[in-house]
């Protein structure tokens, strides 16, 4: 058996529908490299392992363990079995997993199985004399908290889009992991509809700029205005829960307490009242701009630049002014 570095950080990444690594992968390797030597566990769909391993090495994995799912219709359990086998071999100082739906399932199941401690929804990691420490931003960014494990390697799930650091590319060094199946009961994936990426706009998570719209946009058709300003600024599109509930835009764009948490350079809130649950997902932005026709809307309490006005008047003017200044 080959030796693994004594400061190994096991980074677990899965492949998506077309075999590419999940979007959180670069940040996970970036975080790992800052506290130890990144070793990857690649959870791949059948046949996707070696290409994904090359991708992981390019993102900074010193060594890659490949686990191709024997049966892709089995939900979750094979990943947990693979992680258990990988930890056995690598004996890492910490395990980093994305705080995605699948990542949460994996971290939770593995921690329960191995009686490891989990640090959830981390926005950063560091190392002290005792080991790896997770950093969290809680209650909508109102508190900074650090956590770790009483003993053993902590399982740390990392908030998607929260890590800017990137690791240096490594030469490819990969091997196939042998995974003894646990035989634990699992749900089945009966069918899968791949998401069609119909936009060239930046991803909401981790975007440098976000333009978000609320119920004030009034309809799905008029919500297009949000996209127009986003394109003028090169920003991602976000939304309030009320806009999502009203069907103006899919759930994936929801910013807030129960949606995505963002910390962009610029956040523009259009027709959003700024309910506390919305602010919980965006108030750590560097610069906040708000346009709302109600001067008493709570969004103005956190806005660096607030405009009391009608989005249908102000935004078109803003877009043409931005275009004029570009010339």
């Amino acid at each position: 058996m080959t030796e693994f570095p004594s400061d190994a950080i096991l980074v677990v990444v899965e492949t998506g529908a077309s075999g590419e690594l999940e979007k959180a992968a670069p940040g996970l390797f970036g975080a790992a490299a800052a506290v130890g030597t990144p070793i990857a566990l690649v959870l791949a769909s059948p046949g996707a392992g070696s290409a994904a391993a090359a991708e992981a090495a390019a993102l900074g994995a010193r060594r890659v363990l490949i686990a191709e799912t024997p049966d892709p219709s089995v939900l979750g359990v094979p990943s947990v079995d693979a992680l258990a086998a990988a930890v056995e071999q690598v004996q890492p100082d910490a395990i980093l997993i994305s705080q995605s739906l699948n990542g949460r399932d994996l971290a939770g199941r593995y921690a329960a199985r191995s009686r490891a401690a989990v640090s959830v929804d981390a926005v950063g990691v560091s190392r002290d004399d005792e080991g790896v420490v997770a950093h969290h931003s809680v209650y909508g960014g109102a508190y900074d908290v650090t956590s770790t494990s009483t003993f053993g390697a902590p399982v740390i799930t990392v908030r998607q889009g929260s890590i800017e650091a990137r690791a240096t590319a490594q030469p490819q060094d990969s091997e196939t992991l042998t995974v003894p199946p646990s035989g634990k009961r699992a749900a089945r994936i009966d069918s899968f509809d791949e998401a069609v990426v119909a936009t060239s706009r930046p991803e909401l998570r981790g975007a440098a700029k976000v333009v978000a719209g609320g119920r004030g946009l009034g309809s799905e058709e008029q919500f297009a205005l949000v996209g127009q300003l986003a394109d003028a600024l090169g920003a991602a599109v976000g939304a309030s829960r009320a806009a999502v509930d009203a069907g103006y835009i899919p759930t994936a764009h929801q910013v807030g307490q129960t949606g995505v948490s963002v910390s962009p350079q610029l956040y523009v809130a259009l027709g959003i009242s700024g309910a506390i649950q919305h602010r919980a997902g965006m108030q750590t932005a560097k610069m906040i701009v708000a346009i709302n026709k109600d001067g008493d809307a709570p969004i103005f309490e956190v806005a660096d630049f607030g405009v009391v006005g009608d989005v249908f008047k102000v935004v078109p003017q803003l877009i043409s002014a931005l275009e004029a200044r570009k010339k």
């Binding site: 401690a117 989990v118 420490v133 103005f300 630049f305 607030g306």
Partner: peptide, 20 residues
Amino acid sequence: SIMLTVAEKPPRAAGVKIID
């Protein structure tokens, strides 16, 4: 899992507000 440190962040202050 144990908490090591907790720090409160200062609340955000409002900036300029203009009326269109």
